[in-house]
Deep mutational scan, measured.
Amino acid sequence: IGSLMYASIFGNVSAIIQRLYSGTARYHTQMLRVREFIRFHQIPNPLRQRLEEYFQHAWSYTNGIDMNAVLKGFPECLQADICLHLNRSLLQHCKPFRGATKGCLRALAMKFKTTHAPPGDTLVHAGDLLTALYFISRGSIEILRGDVVVAILGKNDIFGEPLNLYARPGKSNGDVRALTYCDLHKIHRDDLLEVLDMYPEFSDHFWSSLEITFNLRDTNMIPGSPGSTELEGGFSRQRKRKLSFRRRTDKDTEQPGEVSALGPGRAGAGPSSRGRPGGPWGESPSSGPSSPESSEDEGPGRSSSPLRLVPFSSPRPPGEPPGGEPLMEDCEKSSDTCNPLSGAFSGVSNIFSFWGDSRGRQYQELPRCPAPTPSLLNIPLSSPGRRPRGDVESRLDALQRQLNRLETRLSADMATVLQLLQRQMTLVPPAYSAVTTPGPGPTSTSPLLPVSPLPTLTLDSLSQVSQFMACEELPPGAPELPQEGPTRRLSLPGQLGALTSQPLHRHGSDPG
């Protein structure tokens, strides 16, 4: 009997000691992992102490058991019943959930998450997105703005933001810190809205009876308010094209079509300037034949640059190039080494500058006005007194259609001029006259002087055409309008007829 009692007592005591040691061994194993994590990542002392304290409290609170892992091991129907039991206190005593059906309560219970916070733990920081609604079931918390405590909340209090009033989550206007050990039930806004969409009859009752104890939403960050730039940057990543407008005076608003859609830094370009900076079609017209890549860069430059609305530039004389043409100036200075066709295309550029300027006046029909002061630039669209967005969009579309028509007509005119030049060069190729044979009589004449090349004649003739079109064909006081194609086609051969009437002889060394 004594040996039996000794064996039973010894066996029970050893089993008890073994169970104690097993729990202690698990605790030390998990604690060792936490300390190894702290050492590996070199976490500083204040945060390291918070980690160790939280682990110790969580171990004593749950005995080292992962409740979520245990809950996920059950089937979904059983999980709903378990969640309904775990959140029964909240669902029974909170006013917004009263009167809900059994199915609605089960769906809500599945969406709730339980959070346990030790003292000093910050649940929400200032500036964080308010993605959830919090219900306090135990403990107390404090809300701070800077170093000032603005509120202390306790059991059955609710904090967050009214989700039904805002389409997008706002930002917190303060820090939420736990004063004691707290148990909180939180539900994400997407989950709550999903359940309320499934039960629309409960939705009206819920929003009407929901009383948020403390609204954390920062009202200064609401979209459309003066301080909402940061919020707009976070939620409006896919922005449309940006529009900046110059201020319109009362006198300017009476004149229709007073602005032109141009790229940034293009205030001095012609009315047909689009795409790359520098001139019509993204580059100076005089350098068009020598740089074919300008047409390839036109599309990307047009689509990537934001639109700006600026006044037209001052008018340019008909014979003056659009500006920024070092290529043609070098050719004029060193005409001995340049291609003979460069002079002809220089005359073509003069005609283009004249036609572009006159067509700009035809479509816009307003006098040039000086540029406004820099303080009046970049007025935002949302400022008071601005035109409605639809009106601005319609004006932009009208300007775009005008620019497209202008570009089409300029292309047709350019093709006409090039065809005339090619026809003239085919009839009378460039050549130098040879020395004529002296006559049989004693009164022999001296050799004839060489005839100037055709490109120079073409430049003079085209300059005469531009001056003739600019000065004589337009009646005084009438708006400057571009001439039609047949009129220009008839004027060019008439001007060139006198020049080509002389018999030109080919030089023996000319390969053409």
Score class of each variant (00 low, 15 high):
469 M>Q: 11
235 F>V: 09
378 N>K: 13
350 N>D: 10
141 I>M: 05
166 Y>I: 04
229 T>V: 10
175 D>E: 09
501 S>V: 10
394 S>P: 11
146 G>Q: 06
400 Q>R: 13
406 L>R: 03
438 P>L: 08
170 G>Q: 02
236 S>W: 07
424 Q>M: 09
395 R>I: 11
477 G>T: 08
139 G>P: 02
316 R>Q: 09
351 I>C: 08
258 E>F: 12
353 S>Y: 04
167 A>C: 12
236 S>L: 10
494 G>D: 07
427 L>Y: 12
498 A>S: 12
139 G>D: 01
481 L>R: 08
163 L>T: 12
282 G>Q: 14
373 T>K: 07
510 D>H: 15
404 N>M: 12
202 F>S: 10
163 L>A: 10
352 F>I: 10
140 S>N: 15
456 T>M: 10
200 P>T: 04
365 E>L: 09
162 P>N: 08
156 N>D: 09
220 N>F: 08
308 R>M: 10
423 R>Q: 12
384 P>K: 15
381 L>C: 09
296 E>K: 05
129 L>Y: 10
353 S>P: 10
402 Q>P: 13
362 Q>K: 05
447 P>C: 06
191 D>L: 01
411 S>H: 10
455 P>N: 11
407 E>Y: 03
373 T>D: 07
201 E>Y: 03
341 L>S: 11
234 G>W: 06
486 P>F: 12
165 L>C: 13
237 R>F: 08
140 S>V: 07
201 E>K: 04
392 V>T: 15
312 F>K: 12
495 Q>K: 14
468 F>Q: 14
143 I>A: 02
362 Q>V: 11
157 D>G: 04
141 I>E: 01
268 G>T: 10
373 T>G: 09
379 I>E: 09
140 S>K: 13
239 R>K: 10
502 Q>I: 07
291 S>I: 15
416 T>W: 05
311 P>A: 12
230 E>C: 10
298 E>V: 11
408 T>R: 10
381 L>F: 08
370 P>V: 09
130 L>R: 02
408 T>V: 12
132 A>W: 05
274 R>H: 01
188 H>G: 09
461 S>M: 08
128 D>E: 14
316 R>C: 15
323 G>P: 06
261 A>K: 09
257 G>R: 08
312 F>S: 09
315 P>T: 07
182 C>R: 02
426 T>P: 10
369 C>E: 12
429 P>Q: 10
208 S>E: 04
140 S>W: 08
469 M>V: 07
154 G>C: 09
214 F>H: 05
266 R>K: 11
181 Y>D: 11
387 R>C: 13
387 R>W: 15
342 S>H: 13
492 L>I: 11
215 N>R: 01
352 F>C: 04
206 F>M: 03
235 F>G: 12
393 E>M: 01
222 I>L: 11
231 L>W: 10
255 Q>L: 10
213 T>S: 07
262 L>Q: 15
245 F>R: 10
299 G>K: 15
327 L>S: 11
241 R>M: 12
503 P>T: 12
234 G>N: 15
233 G>L: 10
364 Q>R: 10
200 P>S: 04
303 S>V: 11
454 L>Y: 13
360 G>S: 10
461 S>C: 09
434 A>C: 12
188 H>W: 01
479 P>Q: 06
443 T>K: 04
441 G>Y: 12
404 N>E: 04
366 L>K: 11
469 M>C: 14
232 E>A: 12
274 R>A: 10
326 P>K: 03
324 G>R: 09
456 T>F: 08
197 D>G: 10
415 A>W: 05
226 P>E: 11
352 F>E: 04
333 K>V: 12
265 G>D: 09
506 R>G: 10
305 S>V: 10
242 K>L: 11
503 P>G: 11
333 K>D: 11
466 S>R: 07
494 G>Y: 11
431 A>F: 09
137 S>G: 10
168 R>H: 15
492 L>W: 08
167 A>G: 12
199 Y>P: 01
266 R>Q: 10
234 G>K: 08
453 P>L: 08
227 G>Y: 12
455 P>E: 10
151 A>V: 03
292 P>R: 14
369 C>H: 07
380 P>H: 04
287 S>Y: 15
501 S>R: 09
421 L>K: 05
420 L>P: 05
492 L>R: 12
368 R>G: 09
238 Q>Y: 09
262 L>D: 07
148 V>Q: 09
460 D>H: 06
462 L>S: 09
185 H>P: 01
403 L>E: 03
280 P>N: 12
132 A>G: 12
349 S>A: 10
135 F>L: 02
263 G>E: 13
151 A>E: 01
133 L>C: 03
444 S>E: 11
429 P>R: 09
135 F>N: 01
254 E>T: 08
200 P>K: 04
142 E>Q: 09
128 D>S: 04
432 Y>A: 14
299 G>E: 07
147 D>W: 01
336 D>H: 10
145 R>K: 13
313 S>F: 12
374 P>F: 09
147 D>I: 01
507 H>S: 13
253 T>R: 11
306 P>K: 12
128 D>L: 02
266 R>I: 11
163 L>V: 10
205 H>I: 08
196 L>Q: 03
334 S>K: 15
402 Q>V: 13
191 D>P: 01
486 P>H: 15
512 G>T: 07
246 R>W: 07
263 G>D: 13
425 M>V: 13
183 D>V: 11
177 R>H: 03
244 S>E: 09
174 G>Q: 04
141 I>Q: 01
394 S>R: 08
505 H>W: 06
338 C>E: 15
211 E>C: 10
196 L>K: 02
174 G>T: 11
270 G>T: 11
501 S>L: 13
356 G>M: 08
250 D>C: 11
480 E>T: 12
321 P>K: 10
131 T>Q: 10
168 R>D: 06
208 S>R: 09
260 S>V: 07
373 T>S: 10
432 Y>S: 13
412 A>I: 08
143 I>D: 01
467 Q>F: 03
245 F>P: 12
147 D>A: 04
223 P>Q: 08
213 T>P: 02
410 L>F: 15
176 V>F: 02
401 R>S: 15
313 S>K: 08
407 E>T: 08
184 L>A: 04
313 S>C: 10
297 D>P: 12
190 D>C: 14
263 G>K: 14
182 C>I: 08
217 R>T: 09
357 D>V: 10
274 R>S: 07
479 P>T: 04
499 L>G: 13
428 V>A: 07
280 P>V: 12
302 R>K: 05
359 R>F: 10
460 D>K: 15
242 K>W: 13
200 P>M: 01
383 S>T: 05
189 R>P: 03
362 Q>T: 11
227 G>S: 11
238 Q>P: 12
199 Y>T: 01
472 E>H: 13
421 L>D: 04
364 Q>H: 08
483 Q>F: 13
247 R>L: 09
453 P>H: 10
142 E>S: 13
237 R>M: 11
141 I>L: 10
410 L>N: 06
447 P>Y: 12
287 S>D: 15
510 D>V: 13
393 E>G: 08
127 G>E: 03
227 G>H: 10
388 P>D: 14
285 P>M: 15
174 G>H: 12
410 L>R: 03
467 Q>P: 12
202 F>A: 07
261 A>E: 14
199 Y>E: 03
